[in-house]
Design a protein around this nucleic acid. Sequence first.
DNA 1: CGAATTTGACCCGCGC
DNA 2: GCGCGGGTCAAATTCG
Length: 176
Amino acid sequence: MENCQMFFPISSSPSEANMAPNSCQAFNSFHGHSSNGLLLDWKSSSSRSAENCFIQKPEIEKTDNQMMKSSSVGKQKEKKKRKQRYAFETRSQVDVLDDGYRWRKYGQKAVKDNKFPRSYYRCTHQGCNVKKQVQRLTKDESVVVTTYEGMHTHPSHKPTDNFEHILNQMHIYKPF
DNA sequence: CGAATTTGACCCGCGC
DNA sequence: GCGCGGGTCAAATTCG
């Protein structure tokens, strides 16, 4: 199995315009509303190695969400821990795809069983809490897994035709 | 000089 | 309870 399905979180404009027909849906669910396109609960299933993290079955669920830092300000807003994540497996030479949004890196960690570190990004748009993490596979370093968490509440600041741009950045991996 | 990145420390959940 | 792995913070540093 080598055909990693890939979807681009392009969402610059509502018109999903010209992208692979089979991927469109994923996009819609991604940016539109979580009509539960491909949410996945990343870690709750015991063992999930990065190598098989395709788009998982729709599942909303638990993850942690409160990170009350030290101090005395126990400000954990909500106790409910739920998070929906969307995973995209792509073949690309660049780690971070330019999806039209502005991301600020806030962390990087070494992942077990993976010689490549995982990078954590947050959308810089004010009020937008979308996060994403990017990780390259050890087994096949040409594969990059991008996991999105949350949904953008604002339009991309890039022109709509950046799909083409993305295509240029990566080797498309068409399932057919 | 402000914004973004780097990087070690810290926190938390989970398995043993 | 402890150690490990993963996620985030924040000070320091680099970059534009």
